[in-house]
Write a protein that binds this DNA or RNA. Sequence first.
DNA 1: TAGATTGTTAATCGATTAACAATC
DNA 2: TAGATTGTTAATCGATTAACAATC
Lengths: 213, 213
Amino acid sequence: MKTLRVPEATVTRLSIYSRFLERLDRNGITTVSSGEIAEGVGVSPAQVRKDLAYFGEFGTRGVGYNVKDLMKYTLKILGLDQTWSLAIIGAGNLGFALCTYYGFNVRGFYVAAVFDIDPTKIGKRIGKLEVQPLDSFPEVTGHEHIRIGVIAVPIRGAQEVADLLIKNGVEAILNFAPMALNVPDHIEVRNVDLSVKLEILTFNLGFRAAQNL
Amino acid sequence: MKTLRVPEATVTRLSIYSRFLERLDRNGITTVSSGEIAEGVGVSPAQVRKDLAYFGEFGTRGVGYNVKDLMKYTLKILGLDQTWSLAIIGAGNLGFALCTYYGFNVRGFYVAAVFDIDPTKIGKRIGKLEVQPLDSFPEVTGHEHIRIGVIAVPIRGAQEVADLLIKNGVEAILNFAPMALNVPDHIEVRNVDLSVKLEILTFNLGFRAAQNL
DNA sequence: TAGATTGTTAATCGATTAACAATC
DNA sequence: TAGATTGTTAATCGATTAACAATC
């Protein structure tokens, strides 16, 4: 089988198209063109068609795409035709927000457990969950295999948490600590750095000011 | 003056280098090479040198870079040689986490005000701040000009909030609602979508499974 | 001087865009 | 049929990498 490499930028946009299609579907729209998707998410129509072409032919020439079908296809491609259990490590304000984040639920993610090392946080309730001591990660997650861990601890604890997760069979990590984690090659890591985009804004505002001089 | 266009990917990495340099500096390290920076943040040494070259010559051949100096340069370039006041719109769990996010403070961001439309949230305290009714945005921010707004409201309210911010002189928006905002050309917008990276992980995990078949 | 590392150019690689035949 | 829109190829654009002279 020919394995075409899919650019990560394509997968990123696919996730965004997918969300947009859900919105169209909720609004009762049944058909959409690449141009309308492009307009809705802020890319070019050719980009939309090229991205989709990595995975198959989903449209009808002269007509466009069936919203519900394309939505299902994108979900399938992204692996969201199943529920994913997450473990969130860190029950601070960010961990709390992630545990209760509606945007995860709506996309088929399910927070199975939350952990912290801070005794004042352990036992606290977050929705239906109770914050567990990090030590108990193996037992707590033992019966249901957790493949994805979310790190929401300060920089100083992040690497240690990553090591623990990996030792316990976690295969992918979403890291909110603003640092690079050291992990084996077979572990997938993506960082979400809340400051980076803010600093792109300040860079651009400053740059704009410099242009005016 | 020759205006060289700086790729956004370069600015993104600059923000990451900057954080890494702060960490080195905190650990008392005084000199660093492009190779060590590269190693520390997960890019190539050539990439590091190329990125820095957009802005000047900061190193010494045969030696490397002075950590403290390079750190200051990167902060300056990113516009972080000043404090930026932010307004956060949305005092739900995510808004709360952003208000109290240490990573903003440490980079010179200051949350000047928080707003919501929900009467049950208005008046609630978040640290030293009190949640204000969104209507009062003009008065509250009147005396100190807020150039950057952070949107942490659900999709259905996001566009309306963006319009209000822009009407009141906000120049840049960091948008956590997973949708594309419609704004005039002169407004800078960057989206932080908490699900996208998670979906890259599920895509890759699913893809890996497919390879094994 | 010898070794190390930068700054920068040229080569490579990959992603986006434009264009259009296919086709509903 | 005429109009619309896809799927796909080729052209363009831009970013990354490799290589090396400059130089500490």
